[in-house]
Amino acid sequence: MSLTLSVDGERWRAHLRAVAAANPGLVPVAKGNGYGFTVGRLARKAQWLHDQGLHDPTAGAPTLAVGTYDELEHVAHRFDGDLLVLAPWRPFGVGLEVDPALADRVVHTVGRLGDLADLLDRQPDARIVLERMTSMKRHGFSAPDLWAASRMLTDRPGARVEGVAMHLPLAQGSHLSEVHRLMNDVVAAELDTRTLWVSHLTGTELTALRTAYADYTIRPRVGTSLWLGDRGALRVESTVLDVHAVERGETYGYRGRGAPKSGHLLVVSGGTAHGIGLEAPTGDHSMKARAATLARGGLDAVGFVRSPFSIDGKLRLFAEPPHMQASMLFLPHGARVPEVGEEVEVRVRFTTTAFDAVRIS
């Protein structure tokens, strides 16, 4: 009676090994909901990858990246290596409360001059990665500020600079021209480091970058394509909890809607508490995407919204908005009616879904 993520363990582990082997210096990313697996489980799997001997010793210590300081407690006892926090350090919040026992393992990301000075005042031997602002325009130093940071660090000999980071956008097309432009600023800063941490570069781009900057160690930070790169190894299923026959016009649900025609109502596990029915912006501005949005709006206006629950290969309609832990679906007359206890497939966005159970074979 749950929303379950089932994983073909052999196939998934083979994919993880292949990604690690193809990405020297790989830094697995475990953040948020852990891409549906939970960050704790991914931390254990990152340790397993290291124990498989797939870590490149020339790339530095094995490292796991987390999204925020709050996530450190969930991974620190499950992964033995360094812990890179991707969120920039600020002189407020939980970044000030790092467990002293972890201080030597935690690598802070810094993107502002004032924060760099403040962090080193508090912890002169802090381990830091300097983030360079990219076209993402999210966090990071401008070129002049990166050079100023380099000058500041000459007066802070205890600081341990672990490299420079670039978080690139997901937009299609090559990022190489932008990386080369940004690397000119990095080289000009004359920092005491030869390590570059990058996100969202393809294998071809990483190879070209290593060739162009052979004296730098490239550390690719990889999340989605590592954990979710082989979707065929992952299956999400919901349990049919109840089935009710309804006639046209018969009322049902929280809002007393009338059935549009005769058929069946299915109550299935999985609701808003799991992330079902909660849609995040896709960023797709194509005409096809806009037409789909208009179509969904039209269906919603008359009480029909396509659900992510699939029965016999067809996505079925919500009978009403999802409940907290269950959803109600409408099956028209003539469709096969699943039995109570049967599992039906669900299409989800893994980064926004919380599963009741994760089963890895």
Rank of each mutant, 00 (worst) to 15 (best):
E247M: 12
H264G: 00
G232S: 05
R221H: 02
D242V: 09
P220C: 14
P260Y: 04
E247W: 10
L228S: 11
A233D: 02
G249P: 06
G223R: 01
R248S: 13
E250I: 01
G223E: 01
K261F: 13
E247A: 11
G258F: 06
A259L: 09
V236H: 00
G256W: 13
W227R: 06
L234H: 02
L266P: 00
L234M: 01
V246A: 00
E250Y: 04
V222R: 07
L228R: 14
L226N: 03
R248V: 11
T239C: 12
L234Q: 00
R248F: 07
G256V: 14
D230M: 09
A259G: 08
G256H: 15
E237C: 07
L228H: 13
S262I: 02
L265I: 10
L241D: 04
V236Y: 00
V243S: 11
V243H: 08
G256L: 15
E237V: 12
L228C: 12
L228I: 10
G249K: 01
A245R: 15
G223M: 08
R257Y: 07
H244M: 13
A245P: 15
Y254E: 15
T239D: 11
R231I: 10
H264K: 02
R255D: 14
G229N: 12
L241W: 03
R257L: 11
V246G: 00
L241N: 05
V236C: 05
V246C: 01
R255S: 14
P260C: 03
Y252D: 02
K261M: 15
E237D: 14
D230S: 13
L226H: 03
R257K: 09
W227M: 06
T224L: 06
